[in-house]
Write a protein that binds this DNA or RNA. Structure first.
Length: 511
DNA sequence: CTATCGCTAAACAAAT
DNA sequence: AATTTGTTTAGCGATA
């Protein structure tokens, strides 16, 4: 059931589009001066009649986000009872007033401190957040999101710590008066959060102390997802500009509700080239491919036959080592392998071939599609976030320090802060050309996915088997079929959320 | 009640 | 030597 937003509908229909758009453009430009956001906004031309001549967000990845009913709490939203709670109507009216005044500041929940200093209170959840205006409210973004936005907003998609500080200070004046501990938190987050990766400096390159930090391409969708789930995330306001239709109510009233994209919506969610030049370029190449096509389902059903009924399998994922606590650290216990069951040799070969072809598509999608189907925060951007690639990475490879990461995971060489600006994951994309799906040898020999597997497995035969098993799980999950070998980053249906598999999912994998 | 998450503080080492 | 950067541990409150 899709829950529309009755309040926002009323708000947006009562006022003209033009005034709303103009005010939002003004507000966002002021909120994010000089940023990619304001650049994207500057590309919009609003006529006197309020028409947006060029709307860079018309195909935004957030343009068709809808809120799906996810839990019993949503029932509250289907009734109008929630309207009566608190001073919501007053707050909403206050939220509409984007012009700053002392009075509206009070109504907007601003916390005016007598000493004019730092407040630890979070921004009120029922007020649209303006970082430039609500300078005394703690931003409703996690440090992960702040760092993500800072890095994404940089020309090279990589920043030294110092400039991350600067970006945050510039865009969130709240931190100008905050104690310096937040810098520690930023560094702590950079260090501990797997989503962020240090870029090795080139020889002779000097950017001062420390390294550049970038987004790990594998986790970028997770961060996007996390940002999307954040109330008042800037891109949502952009979405309102592009598509002033009823939006998820939580973005207005601040209730914590995850967004879920439907399969149909997925295909239309192309990021703005103004905001995500590399991502939009990548997706444009594969936009003609549907996310879950018939062949996926076909292959998945074949896999069900091959693997047997998912429900008949033991709940524990045999390939995931369960976690144990040793000296306070989470480590993996040893596992006992579970051999796959196949039919005749001929049938096995046929299905394997089919599997490999489908696996190639899955691999390609996993590395190129930005949208993540998750409802658990742990799948977004936290220290415990997992990705398909991480499932098969050895989390505690001996000697896998920062210098060996690139080699082991085939990251491209560091570009340097002021270098050509080629995004690191562009090179990864090139490893997944459609033509690779046409040849078994190529498939097995050139993909990162396969390389990871081979590094993990001791023999080619074992690697091939691992390949098939992994692809089987990926396809089954993409087809919405619950399996014991869940690929946790995608296609997790609400009914899977309590599956025993997830409890076996690694909850903390250190870098 | 428990586990997880995000934040904060702190200690410490390494780099500049 | 001082400062900045990076890593790690610990603890707390909020939340699911």
């Amino acid at each position: 059931m899709v829950v529309m937003a009755p309040m926002q509908t009323a708000v947006q229909c009562d006022e003209s589009d033009q005034s709303m758009r103009q005010r939002l453009v003004h507000s966002l430009s002021a909120s994010f001066p000089g940023s990619a956001l304001s650049k994207a906004l500057s590309c919009m031309e609003i006529t006197d009649e309020g028409e947006v001549i060029e709307d860079p967000l018309s195909s935004s990845c957030f343009a068709e986000i809808r809120l799906e009913k996810l839990d019993s709490d949503d029932d509250d939203l289907t009734s109008l009872d929630w309207l009566k709670s608190g001073d919501l109507l007053k707050d909403l009216r206050a939220g509409e007033e984007l012009e700053t005044s002392d009075e509206t500041q009070k109504e907007n929940g601003e916390i005016k401190l007598e000493n004019g200093g730092y407040a630890t209170s979070a921004h009120p959840p029922n007020i649209p957040y303006n970082p430039q205006k609500h300078v005394n409210s703690k931003p409703p973004y996690s440090f992960s999101c702040l760092i993500f936005m800072a890095i994404e907003d940089s020309p090279q998609k990589r920043l030294p710590v110092k400039e991350i500080y600067a970006w945050i200070l510039n865009h969130f004046p709240y931190f100008q008066n905050a104690p310096t501990g937040w810098r520690n938190s930023v560094r702590h987050n950079l260090s501990l959060n797997k989503c962020f990766r240090k870029v090795d400096k080139e020889r002779g390159q000097s950017i001062g102390k420390g390294s550049l930090w970038c987004i790990d391409p594998d986790y970028r969708p997770n961060l996007l997802q996390a940002l999307r789930k954040t109330p008042y995330h800037p891109y949502h306001q952009m979405q309102m500009l592009a598509n002033p239709q009823p939006s998820p109510i939580y973005n207005l009233v601040g209730a914590r509700r995850p967004l879920t994209l439907t399969t149909q919506q997925f295909n239309h969610n192309t990021p703005s080239p103004h905001l995500f030049p590399f991502l939009s370029k990548r997706l444009a190449q594969s936009s003609s491919k549907s996310f879950t096509d018939v062949s996926d389902i076909d292959a998945a059903s074949a896999l069900v036959q091959m693997k047997g009924s998912p429900n008949s399998r033991p709940s524990r994922n045999p390939r995931l080592k369960p976690l144990a606590l040793v000296n306070g650290k989470r480590v993996r216990r040893s596992r006992s392998p579970s051999p796959p069951e196949f039919g005749s040799a001929r049938e096995k070969r046929r299905l394997k071939r089919k599997m490999e072809l489908q696996l190639a598509h899955v691999q390609k999608r996993l590395l190129t599609e930005p949208i993540v189907y998750t409802e658990s925060p742990s799948e977004d951007h936290t220290y415990s976030a997992t990705s398909p690639l991480h499932l098969i990475r050895s989390p505690t490879s001996p000697g896998s320090g920062s210098s060996s990461i690139d080699e082991e995971y085939d990251f491209g060489p560091a570009d340097g802060y002021q270098s050509d600006g080629v995004d690191s994951f562009v090179s990864e994309e090139s490893n997944f050309d459609e033509s690779e799906c046409e040849d078994d040898n190529t498939l097995n020999d050139s993909g990162n996915f396969s390389r990871f597997i081979r590094k993990k497995c001791s023999s080619p035969a074992e690697a091939a088997e691992e390949d098939v098993k992994l692809g089987a799980d990926a396809l089954l999950n993409l087809a919405g079929i619950n399996t014991s070998n869940v690929v946790p980053i995608r296609a997790i249906s609400p009914s899977d959320s309590n599956s025993p598999v997830q409890s076996d999912t690694p909850s903390l994998i250190k870098k």
